[in-house]
Amino acid sequence: MSEIIIQIDGRDVAAREGMTILEAAQTAGITIPTLCHHEKLEPYGACRICTVEIENRGRTRLVAACLYPVEKDLVVRTRSEKVDRIRKVILELLLAHAPEATELQVLAKEYGADKDRFEKESSFCILCGLCVRYCAEVKKKHAVGFVDRGTGREISFIPEIASRECWNCKECFPLCPTEALQAAYVLTEALISSSPSFKLEAEE
């Protein structure tokens, strides 16, 4: 793989072909915030908090750093007025769901996001999909998945699979930036233990 030199925040950074902007930045020790990214998982591009400004062939664009592949002569700005405003609003939208989430609070401080700007939502989940994707891609168990679409989208454990797999795993718990995942699991557990058709692994 050939080496490509790109510029991030005024610094020349050496990257390999096929790398994303985020990976190139990380190797150079430059921080770009992420919420749905995980090194063991396929890039997802859903939270958009890693949005950066790029300049290439005379055009300026906003792209997701976790997905955009590096290319020759690329100029990246990880902070700008536009980028900061986007991150601030994204955080405010997510804080309506999970005002207490530490990860969000730290970023909120950095970007001046107001956790009370929008009316609070009933679900804590910010749908980063870390649990869903970790369970599918790393554990290959598919015990938790997405349901519904649009603003109705949710995560949901599959009781049939959860009753077999989750008790002894729970590797997704620490990935969750909010309390939503554990809440969803507790609910599923209640469903499993109240239903004669499921048997928790731990009880056996």
Partner: peptide, 22 residues
């Protein structure tokens, strides 16, 4: 319409539409 017809994957679209609609 869009609240029910977008996929709901990315935050600006899903949450942006939710709040604008509200």
């Amino acid at each position: 319409f869009l609240a029910g017809e977008s996929c709901g994957k990315c935050v600006p679209c899903r949450e942006g539409i939710r709040q604008m609609l509200k």
